Amino acid sequence: MRKYIVMFIAALCLASVAYAADSQIWGEMRIQNILGYGQEESWKLGPLFTMLQHKYFAWIFLGVLIGVPAAFFIHYKIIGPKVFPHSEKKYYAFNLYNRIIHQVAAVSFLVIIPTGFIIIFGDFFGGGTFVRMAKNLHGIFTIPFTIVVIPMALMWLKEALFNMDDVKWFMILGGYLSKEKKPILAGKFNAGQKMWYWVAILGGITMILSGAFMYFLDFKMQMLHNLTGMSQIDLLRAAAIIHNVMGFAVLALFITHVYMSMFAIKGAVHSIITGYVEEEELKILHSTWYKKLKDQGKF
Rank of each mutant, 00 (worst) to 15 (best):
Leu282Lys: 03
Trp59Tyr: 11
Leu282Pro: 09
Leu14Glu: 01
Leu161Pro: 06
Thr146Leu: 11
Ile241Ala: 06
Ala191Cys: 09
Gln32Ile: 14
Gln24Gly: 06
Met246Ser: 13
Tyr4Pro: 00
Leu202Glu: 00
Val6Phe: 01
Ile60Asp: 12
Gly80Ile: 11
Ser231Trp: 04
Ser87Phe: 12
Ile147Tyr: 09
Lys168Ser: 05
His257Trp: 02
Arg2Lys: 15
Met230Glu: 06
Gly128Thr: 07
Lys182Phe: 08
Ile265His: 06
Pro114Arg: 01
Pro114Met: 05
Phe57Arg: 03
Gly139Val: 06
Ala58Asp: 02
Glu88Leu: 07
Tyr37Trp: 14
Thr115Asn: 04
Phe248Pro: 00
Lys298Phe: 12
Ile241Asn: 04
Val104Gly: 01
Ile101Lys: 04
Val104His: 05
Lys194Pro: 02
Ser87Arg: 13
Ala200Asn: 10
His286Ser: 07
Ile273Arg: 08
Lys182Met: 08
Tyr197Asp: 06
Met155Cys: 05
Gly247Cys: 06
Ile25Lys: 01
Asp166Asn: 03
Tyr215Met: 13
Leu65Tyr: 02
Ile119Gln: 07
Glu41Ser: 15
Gly67Ile: 08
Val148Glu: 10
Ala134Glu: 00
Leu253Ser: 13
Asn95Ser: 07
Tyr97Asn: 13
Met195Tyr: 08
Ile112Ala: 03
Asp22Phe: 04
Ile78Ser: 09
Thr256Glu: 10
Ile233Lys: 07
Val64Gln: 14
Thr206Met: 15
His86Ser: 11
Pro69Phe: 05
Phe248Ser: 08
Met51Gln: 11
